[in-house]
Amino acid sequence: MNVKYMYSLLAVIVLFLLAYLGVEAAGLRMLFGIVIPYVAVGVFLLGVIYRVMGWARSAVPFQIPSTCGQQKSLPWIKPNKIDNPFTPGAVVVRMFLEVCCFRSLFRNTRNAIKEGKLIFEWEIWLWVAALAFHYAFLTVIIRHMRLFTNPVPVCIQMVEKLDSFFRFEILTNTMQVGLPGFYLSGLILLAAVTFLLLRRMMIPQVRYISQAADYFPLFLIFGIAFTGILMRYFTKVDIVAAKELAMGLVSFHPAIPARAIGGVFYVHLFFVCTLLAYFPFSKLMHMGGIFLSPTRNLPGNSRAVRHVNPWNYPVEVHTYEEYEEEFREKMIEAGLPVEKE
């Protein structure tokens, strides 16, 4: 048993019990349905602004792009335009590939000892799972906008339709998976987050560097995806009442619907609120940080353009001319060579 992931798992279980018992036993629907969501969104927005502005204020004293290719130099040496961008446009291309395709993660290698030799193997599964995870999460978020907009914009309905193109059905008396639509994004999200979690737990080297703060978001997102899938295919909730609650929140007329929605819904909501409030103060801020990483967003033009640290304070300098001016006579007296007689 690893203390680090047990703590994170315990934290998520406690959150689950808090929300479930808070609503089902103590009847705190007002707290979990209205107060906490507003607080969480507020904390998220202010926290993100605070963190990003903190980065904006930070000094970038050096030109430190990471290079993965030949820098532009002499005309007969072929530069690598994207991996060592020279112009702002090339930086934009590099950043786009980084943000949308996780290009540097694609180059991920794993080292191992084979036949007594240290070798580096190309390791693609982390990249595949990370890409699947992020895009599935994005799709899930876009899909959920149907509960926050009225009327639902056509583009959101299109995403829903695309996401549920895969039709299949498992029907028993207790569950109804699919029918008519089975959302692939939900399954991919759960599968990818499970992979990322198991990867941290199973690979000794990764487990060694993993902290509770690495496991907690994974357990939390697992909980979010799990409760969501639970509500869609297993114990259904009154979705119209859920949307009434969500619409009340976003139109600033919050009200708890008269009809009960069910404890699982409040657990789902509370997990999401926890994620939102936790977001700005955790590693999840890589969402904003990736845009601001100097090793990625600076052009590799250090041979052509001098990077002047804008945070340099003006330094008083005493040049050699001024020095000689001051001490010329004494220098001549001492027999030291001077430039001007």
């Binding site: 998220f44 927005l45 904006a56 906008m145 009225n150 009442a241 009434e244 976003v250 139109s251 904003g288």
Partner: peptide, 25 residues
């Protein structure tokens, strides 16, 4: 700051999309 403003505009989409629209169930 421009990037931050764009992000906040996207994030608060449901709030401004429903602005001034009463939407009873």
């Amino acid at each position: 700051i421009a990037g931050l403003v764009i992000f906040i505009a996207i994030f608060t989409f449901p709030f401004w999309y429903n602005l001034g629209k009463a939407s009873p169930g």
